[in-house]
Design a protein around this nucleic acid. Structure first.
Lengths: 326, 326
DNA sequence: ACTGTGAGTGCAATCGATTGCAACTGGAGG
DNA sequence: CCTCCAGTTGCAATCGATTGCACTCACAGT
């Protein structure tokens, strides 16, 4: 692999000059003809800068750490894809890690990535009470901490839940239950709060242990045990809603004839479920894209304001909701 | 951030000694008591090695590049997850990149990652005719090149297709068509070859432009135009099969009453389609895991044999296949 | 007493790019 | 003619960890 010294020799200049010519920020310091010579030499040799050397000297790496719970959760692929595209706009790349929701593993990953000179982090994992290291630029995606001060990009959970409840009420439902996501995740919590707010009353709620089908199944059974005569269930997200489907089927209840179900996220294939899932479409890809841009902004100016970006959502009505039973 | 010099000073030794004490491979050269002192000092200071410096010196980074077409294709998340877990076993991390099947972008990504001192690559993108740079350890996942010489991990495409054809024949089908994946991808090609082999006759085949639902839709229409009286279609993968569903519906044909359809991969939610998709289950996660291990093996011993790992597959029968019409 | 041995440690070079500072050049201004 | 300045370029230090080599020291063998 050719080094900058090789390029400099070929162009007949000193390595320092070559470095300045190669770097667009310092290129102005070098004579235009020299720049051309260096650039030609670099191309001829197929020169690619050694990023380890550069990182060592500049203390930056153009790499961002992306930490999520589990890539197999269908919300994340499009988000991660958006992140990657956003990072690439600025020549950044993504180091990816999964935590399975394990705080210890998250910590390990975080440290390991930081040791690799990561310039910043995009986290989809933090709990509401997380204290995040402030020294390194960080953006939360699809999550938020209570404390604030950390920039985040999320979908509008509150508006989404209100849309769902309004749609159900419009269909004549009044006995509406909520199978919420985990309390310790901001997504679960915000939707729960919005639900309570939208229903303004003492409404039946159970909390799923996780945003998974299995946890949704289990939590739905608990809900049905407490309140058997519900006509609609607002689930904390689409996977939980699929758990509802299974739980309701196990109790011999039909969707939507006996009971309506709604999800949240509009994951791929939500339209192919039976019945198709009425849900809130969030702009997955854009959430990722915006979070990458926000991170880059923070890296460029760590002292700037900790923006919170909230992206609009959309109601998608499908077969899982129908008129209230009576 | 403390450096190894700080650790050494605190332990009252030279940086070189600290380095040897910290590195398990060279630890034997250092007196046991000294090792303890260094380790304590390191812990007390919260020392984390600067990986840029290490990479610069050792020319390794413990980072592998993972390049795939598009994370939003549902086959990839579980594979990538497996890769990540496999890499982590050895303290490696994954730099992720998407190409959208664009060869130029792939080349750019490859170079950019190589510039970042990537120790090796796992590629899910290469075309059958790709000439891969031999200098850097590379493993192909779910793909293969014609030339050989590059280690790969794939599912057993040939056996899978034979299973499908046999199952269809068993159901009484004889007029079976194939909507194949792209010719230039080994997956598409191998399944096509296996199909021809299994049918041992001049069978109707069209090739989809890509492994996507849209391409499958379009290719299915072409197939139906040529051979209207098929009783079964073997699709190149699940997404193409979903395209078949749509194409058949647009022609007023019912699955499986009028025509049976099979897929390949058993992507998440293949069971939730209507009708549920009969397909070949491949061990996504294990494919990823094995490819990571294989890469690590290659990195450790680049001169070793270029293994080809083929993992077994399984037939999953669901509602999309039924008895032949007549 | 002397040499040989081997364990343990220190010294200093090295990896490649970046950057503050100095040096040089030519031309403008006094 | 001298000074000064702007425009360029070179010099050398620097980032932090690793590693070949040399050195020290204690001890065993003769």
């Amino acid at each position: 692999m050719p080094t900058i010294k090789d390029v400099a020799d070929r162009a007949g200049v000193h390595a320092a000059t070559a470095s300045r010519a190669l770097n667009s920020a310092t290129r102005g310091m070098v004579n235009a003809r020299t720049v051309t010579r260096v650039l030609e030499a670099a191309k001829a040799l197929g020169y690619a800068p050694n990023s380890a050397a550069r990182s060592l000297r500049t203390r930056t790496s153009s790499v961002a750490g992306v930490i999520i719970p589990d890539l197999r959760n269908p919300v994340f692929p499009p988000i991660v894809r958006g992140i990657e595209d956003g990072l690439r706009e600025a020549g950044y790349m993504a180091l990816l890690g999964n935590t399975d929701g394990d705080a210890v593993r998250e910590r390990e990953l975080f440290d390991a990535m930081r040791g690799r000179q990561t310039d910043g982090f995009i986290l989809a994992t933090s709990r509401r009470d997380d204290a995040l290291p402030a020294e390194v630029p960080t953006v939360l995606v699809n999550r938020r901490t209570d404390a604030g001060g950390v920039p985040s990009v999320t979908a509008d959970n509150s508006v989404g839940v209100h849309m769902l409840v309004r749609a159900l009420v419009h269909l004549g439902h009044s006995r509406i239950g909520h199978v919420a996501g985990p309390r310790h995740l901001s997504t679960g919590w915000e939707r729960y709060r919005a639900f309570v707010d939208a229903m303004d009353g003492a409404e039946p709620v159970t909390f799923a242990e996780a945003f998974t089908e299995d946890a949704g199944f289990e939590a739905t059974l608990r809900l049905l045990d407490t309140v058997p005569d519900l006509t609609a269930i607002v689930a904390g997200n689409d996977l939980i809603a699929l758990g509802c489907y299974a739980a309701l089927a196990s109790r011999g209840l039909r969707v939507p004839e006996d009971i309506s179900v709604t999800g949240f996220n509009d994951i791929p294939f939500a339209d192919r479920q039976r019945p198709g899932l009425t849900t809130i479409r969030i702009p997955h890809y854009d959430i990722g894209l915006e979070s990458a841009r926000l991170l880059l902004e923070r890296i460029a100016n760590p002292a700037g304001p900790a923006k919170r970006i909230v992206l609009p959502v959309e109601l998608v009505t499908r077969g899982s909701t129908g008129p209230a039973r009576n």
